[in-house]
Simulated scan of single mutants.
Amino acid sequence: MTAAIRPMVNRDSAYFWEGTLKGELRIQSCNACGVLRHPPGPACPECGALDRGYVVASGLGTVFSYVVHRHPPVPGKELPIVIALIDLDEGVRMIGEVVGDGVAEMVAIGTRLRVDFNRVDDDLAMPIWHVEEGR
């Protein structure tokens, strides 16, 4: 298996990747007005404040949209790959890979997902998504 493609980590996103290493799915919040946002950024899109924080998400969400990638091959990945746009229960959307046996046939718009974390190495854990049990 080849090495994972590493995300860009900067001061806007470092808190997110620090959280994944701890098994937390973090969402940026505005400390001034409380708005949640993803992807993270330097200023609040609602009030313009630069005072950022984060909340730890429940790790649950619903498939808003998805694609099943069947070709061409992707180094280090087994096909098919399911990539979903997930409506988190907290009200923001996030893109993620949905994994598991037979997942390409199981995922549909509205499918409930839960997050897990794939530890790549000491410095990186990637959020991955599974279909919620009983769904």
Rank of each mutant, 00 (worst) to 15 (best):
113 L>Y: 02
12 D>A: 08
4 A>Q: 13
94 M>Q: 01
51 D>E: 13
114 R>K: 15
94 M>K: 00
68 V>Q: 07
64 F>A: 05
31 N>H: 04
76 G>T: 05
134 G>T: 05
10 N>W: 14
86 I>Q: 01
36 L>I: 07
80 P>H: 03
129 W>A: 00
87 D>E: 15
60 L>C: 02
44 C>E: 08
89 D>W: 01
112 R>P: 01
68 V>N: 04
84 A>W: 02
124 L>R: 11
87 D>Y: 01
9 V>C: 12
45 P>M: 07
55 V>N: 10
43 A>M: 14
32 A>V: 07
111 T>Q: 04
49 A>G: 07
61 G>S: 10
76 G>K: 02
79 L>M: 15
48 G>P: 03
88 L>G: 04
47 C>A: 07
87 D>V: 03
103 V>I: 14
72 P>C: 06
42 P>V: 05
63 V>E: 00
85 L>A: 06
118 N>R: 15
118 N>P: 02
46 E>V: 09
26 R>K: 06
132 E>H: 09
134 G>V: 04
27 I>V: 15
116 D>W: 03
105 E>P: 00
96 G>W: 06
38 H>W: 14
84 A>M: 08
89 D>Y: 00
98 V>K: 02
52 R>K: 11
135 R>I: 00
4 A>W: 07
100 G>V: 02
21 L>N: 08
92 V>L: 09
125 A>N: 10
18 E>P: 10
42 P>H: 07
75 P>H: 15
20 T>P: 11
61 G>Q: 14
118 N>E: 14
94 M>L: 11
53 G>W: 14
32 A>Q: 14
129 W>H: 02
131 V>Q: 12
65 S>T: 13
51 D>H: 11
74 V>P: 13
25 L>A: 04
79 L>D: 13
59 G>R: 14
89 D>L: 02
83 I>A: 12
116 D>Q: 05
86 I>T: 08
94 M>G: 00
35 V>G: 00
68 V>L: 03
135 R>S: 03
120 V>Y: 02
98 V>Q: 07
75 P>C: 14
92 V>Q: 10
133 E>P: 03
38 H>E: 10
133 E>V: 03
28 Q>G: 04
128 I>Q: 12
5 I>P: 03
19 G>F: 10
1 M>F: 01
102 G>S: 03
55 V>E: 14
84 A>I: 01
121 D>V: 14
28 Q>M: 10
106 M>K: 15
109 I>Q: 00
57 A>P: 05
102 G>Q: 04
58 S>K: 14
65 S>I: 09
